[in-house]
Each structure stands twice: as C-alpha cells, then as structure tokens.
Design a protein around this nucleic acid. Structure first.
Lengths: 293, 293
DNA sequence: CTAAATTACGACAGTCGTAAATATC
DNA sequence: GATATTTACGACTGTCGTAATTTAG
C-alpha cells in the first residue's frame, strides 16, 4: 500500500480511465496498470472493473481510506515544512461563503491597518476544501460554517492536529422563496419542513446531511444539488422555488426574491468556526483575536 | 514518506534506539539508519537527536502524524480483508474495564444461548487500544467508556469508517477513600474537586483530560498516573489516598476502602459506547441489539 | 476495427545486508 | 575502549518506459 500506488488508484477512479490518470500523474499508462495490479495483488482482491473502468465494492471501500490517508500524508509534510519555513508577509484565508460577514471584513481591515505591508488573500471554499487548505499549508486560517446544537462543535475531518475555535453563533434560518406560504412567519419549526423540497448546497449553505444529524430527524431530501460557493446563485434557485436551504439570517439578506425565517425549534445555531494550525503566525493570532475578542 | 520508513521512525522513537528498533522490525541496524536518513532527506530536516536517541521538535511533530497514519493503513487493509474473509465462529469483544457490567454479562449469556457453537473472547483494553482493535480487525466489537455531557458522544480517534452507538448512560461518580471528608455526601460538585489530588488512569477510569474538557474547567491535575486496566488496583490506590478517580457508580462498588459519590454538577454522565465495523456479522448485530434494546 | 488495458522485457534506481569506519559516552 | 550509529559497497529486487499483445466495444 505504497502511497504512490494509492495516488494512482484514486486518480484512476476519479477519471474513470487508466490513460487519463497516467497523463495527470505524469506516468505512462503501463505504469498505472502495474500500480493497480500491484495493489490488487497486495490486497488480494480486484479493486477495479475494466471497460468501463470503475471501482468494485472493495475499490469503493479503499477509496474511503485512500483519500484521508493521502490528505494526512500531505498534512504531515506541510506541518513539518511550517516548522522550518520563513514566514512570508502574506495571509491566506480560506473562507466559507457564509463566514464572509461585515465582522470579518472589519477584522481584516483592522489587521491591514496594523500591518500595512501584509498581503491578504481570501479564497472562498467549501468546508472540506478549507480544512484541507489549512492542513496542507495552502491557507493560514480557515473559517467554516454549519449547523449544530448551541455550543456544539462542527464535525470536521480529522486529518491532523489543528486548533478550532468558535467565532460566532447566530440563529439558524431557512431561506424561502418570498412567495412561500411560511415566508411571513417570524419563526418556524424545522421539523415542519422535513418533507419540503430542499437544495443540497454543501459548500454554500448547511449541508443537508448535517441538518438531518443536528435536527436528529430524517427527511430533508435533496431535489436539487448545488455545487460551488456562490450564495447569490443559491438565492436564485431558492427564489425560483427549486427548494429551500439553511443559512445564517445575516448572510441571507439581500438575496432577491427570498426571505430568511428563523428556526425556533429544535434549538439549533448557525455556527462559524475558526480552524488554524497549532502554531499560528502573528497575523493569524491577531485576526483570531479580532474575530473572537 | 514510505510507510516502511515511518514504521522504522516510530519504532526508533518508541525504543530510543536504532538497534532495538531494527531487531523489533527484523532489519539490520544499518537498514534502519538508512531509513531515518532517507526520511530526513525527504523532509529536509533532522528528525532525531543521536546519543541519546530522541526526537527533535520536527520528529515530535512527525510522530503525531505517523501513528494515526500507520493505524489507518492497517485499518484500510483490515477493512478490505473483512469483505472477503470467511466469518469464523468466534466473537472477539474489546471492552473497557467500566463496560464490563452485569448487563453485558447477561447480554453475552443470551448470545451464547442463541448460538451455542460460538466462541467468545473478551479482552479488556483502554479506549484507543479498543478502537484500534476494531479498526484492524482484531476485535469484532468494542465497548468504550468515558465522561461527557448527556447524550454527547465520546471523542474517539478517527482512523476510518466505523459505527458508534450509545449503550448506556449512568450518572458520573467520583471514587473517594472511605475516610475522605466528602465520602458521606449523597452528591458533590465536580468543580469543588478541581484542585484535589487525582489519579490519571486513562485506561481504567475517565481520563483526566476528558474530565477537564467535559467539565470545561482547569485543574484535575494528576499526582499519580495509573496504567493498565485493572479496576481493583486503582481502587487500592484511591483507598490509600493517592488521589481520586472518576467512574460509573456501578463499577465502583466492591472496591474495598472506597466510596463512590455521585456528581451532581456540572451535569455529566458516564457513557458507554459501542464501536463496530459498518458491516457487522450476525453475532455482533445480536449483541448490539441486546445491549441497546 | 479501434481505443484501451495488459504483458514482456531491458535499463535503471532503490534497498537490503555485510563489513569497515566513525563518533560518543 | 566499548557501544552504537554511519558509511561503503556489492547483490538483488522492484519500478519505470518502450513496444508488442490482448481484449472489449
């Protein structure tokens, strides 16, 4: 189970082709074929069906291990690299769409006043991507969001040591089309909407799986899935009646044709959490202080 | 970062010696020396101080990654092996000391009545060891214990997909010497004992780090550390006044010279959790049903 | 028949063990 | 000076690419 072999395996599954994977990894297709053969011989079971190329049951299972494994390998390398590198005068922030609030903008402004030479890069990413960016050293700090019971932490992928800290807890809200029968209500119960049509927008709003878990309820089935990290686009779909989404009330304002209604029960919050390496640079510490102070 | 190299690195750190590590792994010292040199060259930084042998700062950091990485590698292999193996007529149960209760004994009795040919093996292990046993296929089922807020899950190492489920929640109790001033109380507040002398018995009672986290409090400093998984021995130490320990009230009975007093605040429970692979065999399902039904 | 994966095979790199050298307590 | 790690070196295994072969649509 050499990491190189796992990398090839993942690439083949992702692309559905030996040749495409080989090209992406800079190998010949022959080499990739040998990699898969070596893995299958090592594990004693076929991992891929050929023509069309796809994972077997064992292959599916291996994929669930291979990705976190490769991520942690990257994270370990980045972690050691952080110990020796010279700190560049740049702060990279991986930010969930709903975490990009006036409070964050103000905190960044304060930071830039305090450190005029500091270059700041903000990247809007989904939760796993954001955590991954911190772990691999691509970002210095991440702000991720989700729904949880009050003061409960968000479920984050555990691929290495990192520090997490609550930045904000707001009421949870449901984004409805302005024409929705419940749009005028001051508040609503989430369970009343379990059988409604929802949009699963895991990188933009609260992932539906998390909503189900937090509400300890079934339902919340997705009719439509929305990729990417653009809130406005999600608002368009909600306004057009494709389904509902769970959000923080603040970020839901200004989405034309929609109304955000607070969730009164079960008692859930929209939580923003800070994720950073255990040994943050000074600008990171300052920003964290500004966001939690 | 070949896993073989990481394995050698971990072995050297654990044993504090290249030669001892080589012997344990079936290599020559020379090979292990080359492994470490290769790792250090790859990561571009020294990982070990020599004479005496010990990890550098970067080495400490690498250790935090290497162990979970190797565990997940084992877990992946075991996971795939489970898909193809023939199920043996044997159930191996990895069990925390405090999980070995009359309820468990009864459930096992019921299982053996229902499946007379089934061999049962019970191994008493600490939490991480128990989870590790399930992940690597050494055990079919684990019962782990700890302290948490009511209905909160225990913090378990995340090294692969597994199913966890609450088996029991009892009040949390503190084990005191019979002569302790608080021994007669019907209940006590944990925070009153934050500055008491504690014994850290992570594999036998509630780990102190977990107690601190659950109580959201500092304190609970260990004067004495107790390894192993024998409750009676821990009782001896408590009775002799070496310190206190947190436990479930049921398991604390019959420890001579000690008294268990219930914790009334903060609201915490002693929780027993079931851990098993996602695709449990029939006897495992039956036992889980008996324990949660 | 064509696109794509596998197999055969030679060149090369990497890893092991033996043994000599070197460093530390 | 004894013990332990490192280095040198030869043997061997494993992995890559090229190219021929097989297979499935």
């Amino acid at each position: 189970m050499d990491p190189h072999l796992l990398r090839s395996f993942v690439a083949v599954v992702e692309r559905g082709s030996f040749s495409a994977a080989a090209q992406a990894l800079g190998y010949t297709q022959s080499a990739v074929s040998q990699h898969i053969a070596a893995l299958e011989a090592d594990l004693g079971t076929p991992l891929l069906r050929r023509r069309p190329v796809g994972p077997t049951e064992a292959g599916e299972r291996l994929m669930e291990h291979a990705r976190p494994l490769l991520l942690r390998l990257e994270a370990a390398r980045a972690d050691l690299a952080r110990l020796t590198r010279v700190r560049p005068a740049r702060l990279t922030l991986a930010c969930a769409p709903a975490a990009l609030t006036p409070a964050l903008a103000d905190a960044l402004a304060g930071l830039r006043r305090a450190a005029p030479g500091l270059a700041v890069e903000v990247r809007v990413l989904g939760r796993d991507e954001a955590v991954r960016a911190v772990l691999t050293g691509a970002a210095d700090l991440a702000l991720v969001t989700g729904a949880a019971a009050p003061s409960d932490p968000l479920p984050l992928p555990d691929a290495g040591p990192m520090t997490t800290r609550a930045a904000a807890e707001e009421p949870l809200a449901v984004l409805l089309p302005a024409s929705h029968p419940l749009a005028g209500r001051p508040a609503l119960r989430l369970t009343d909407l379990a059988d409604a049509r929802w949009i699963d927008a895991p990188d933009t709003a609260v992932p539906l799986a998390e909503l189900r878990a937090a509400a300890r309820s079934d339902g919340f089935e997705a009719q439509v899935t929305y990729g990417g990290t653009d809130l406005r686009g999600l608002g368009m779909l909600v306004a057009a009646g494709h389904g509902l989404a769970a959000l923080a009330p603040g970020v839901a304002e200004g989405l034309a044709g929609t109304v955000a209604v607070r969730v009164s029960a079960p008692r859930l919050v929209h939580r923003t959490e800070i994720v950073h390496p255990r040994d943050p640079d000074e600008p990171v510490r300052a920003l964290v202080a500004a966001l939690t102070g």
